[in-house]
Write a protein that binds this DNA or RNA. Structure first.
Lengths: 197, 197
DNA sequence: CGCGACGTTGATTTGCCTCAACGATTGTGG
DNA sequence: CCACAATCGTTGAGGCAAATCAACGTCGCG
C-alpha cells in the first residue's frame, strides 16, 4: 500500500486562534505554513528531561502530559493537554537550556509542531500571532497561579473537585494514577479518598 | 509648604524594558506617557478581593505582595514584588470580573500604574510593548510552573531554600510570617524548622 | 506606658505517605 | 486464542511531616 501524504487538518488550531485574533485567509495560510505534524504512540516521549526543547506543540488528537520526576523516581504531572491545548517545556524553549520536565503521550496522539525560531519569525511577520500567544500565555499564567493557591488552601479532596472542573471529560479517560499525580497525592491515598466519597 | 508635583522617575522601568526590547527616545516617551504614579503607606491595600482590577503595577520603591485569604481567614502569599517587579490581579484585569486575591504594601512603597485600557492601546501603537509583555508573561509562567513543581516535590525546608534563591535580599527585610506564608507553612512550623537548621 | 503584632516553644492531633499484600484488568507473545 | 506478565486499583497497618492549640517573652509604636 502506497504511503500517501495526508492533508494536515488545521481546523482545530485555526478555531483556537480565531477565539482571540482575526486572521484573513492569507494570514491563516502563512501561519499554517510554519507547522509540521507528528504522530505519537501511547507512552511515546516527545521531550526528555535534560534535553533542549525547541518546539511548542498543539494537540489535535489523543492526550499528552508534562511531568517532572523527583529524586525518588516519582512522577508529578504539571499539565494535561487534550485536543485543542498547547503544551511545551517552556523553560527550555525560552532559555535554550536543558529542560527539567518530560512530555509524553498518555494514548496514541497527534500534534502540530511549531519551532521556536519559526514562532519568532511569525511574531515579526504577523503581530497578531504575537498577540495570540501573549493572550494565551496570560491565561495560562492565571491558571497556574490559581493552582498554586489551590495547593495552599485546599485539601486533597477539594483539589480533586477543582480538577474535575478544570478538566471535565478527562476524569473518565485518564488512569486514576495520573489524576492522583496531578493533584499531588499518592495513588493509594487517592483510592481511599474516593472510597470515602 | 507648597505642594510640588514631582518629576516621575522612569529610570527603573525603562531599564526593565530595555532588558527585552529596544525603544528609541520617542517610543520611551510614548510608553511613559501612559503611566501614572501612586504612593502607598505600609499595609495600604491596592487591590481588594471582590473588586474588579483595571491596572497593572510596577514597583519603584518598597515592597508589595499579592495574597489570597481562605475561608478560615488565613492569608497565603502568591507573590512578592520588590522594586523592579510587576504585580497585578491578572485574573481580574483580563476577565474584568471581581478578583480573588488582594494586593497590599508590606512597607511604604511607590508604584507606577498602567491601566489595562492604556496597555491595550500601547499594544497596538507600539508592537514592541506587546512583545515586552509577552516575554515577561512567559517568564512569569515558567516561574509559576516551577513553584507548582516545588510544592509537589520539595519539603518545607527545601522550599525555603528555593525561596532564598528566588528572592535574595528579601530574606532579611520581610517578617518571617510572610515568608512562611509564601512557602506554605504555618509561622510556628517555620520557626521550629529554622531552629533545627 | 500599654497594647497589639511578632516570634518561640511544647503537647497533641491529623492528613497524607510508606510499605506490603492482594484482586482485577490490560496487553502481549507464543 | 490462551497464558502469563505487567500495570492498575484497592485495602490495611504503621509512621511522619506539618497543623493546631496554647502559653509566654519581646519589641515597636500610638
Amino acid at each position: 500500500m502506497a504511503r500517501v501524504k495526508k492533508e494536515l487538518d488545521f481546523s482545530l488550531i485555526l478555531a483556537a486562534l480565531s477565539r482571540h485574533v482575526d486572521l484573513n485567509a492569507e494570514e491563516q495560510a502563512c501561519f499554517c505554513a510554519y507547522l509540521s505534524h507528528r504522530s505519537l504512540k501511547n507512552k511515546e516521549l516527545l521531550q526528555r528531561e535534560g534535553e533542549v526543547a525547541d518546539s511548542t506543540f498543539f494537540v489535535t488528537r489523543g492526550c499528552l502530559r508534562s511531568y517532572s520526576t523527583d529524586e525518588q523516581g516519582l512522577e508529578h504531572v504539571v499539565q494535561f493537554a487534550p485536543p485543542g491545548w498547547w503544551i511545551a517545556e517552556l523553560y527550555s524553549v525560552i532559555s535554550k537550556r536543558p529542560g527539567t520536565t518530560n512530555i509524553d503521550a498518555l494514548e496514541a496522539s497527534e500534534v502540530l509542531v511549531m519551532k521556536r525560531s519559526d514562532q519568532e519569525k511569525l511574531f515579526i511577520e504577523l503581530p497578531k500571532i504575537e498577540r495570540y500567544f501573549r493572550i494565551i500565555t496570560e491565561n495560562s499564567l492565571v491558571s497556574s497561579r490559581q493552582r498554586i493557591i489551590d495547593s495552599m488552601t485546599l485539601s486533597a479532596l477539594e483539589r480533586y473537585q477543582a480538577f474535575c472542573k478544570r478538566y471535565p471529560g478527562l476524569i473518565f479517560s485518564l488512569p486514576q494514577k495520573q489524576i492522583a499525580s496531578y493533584i499531588g497525592v499518592t495513588p493509594e491515598f487517592f483510592s481511599k479518598m474516593k472510597a470515602r466519597f
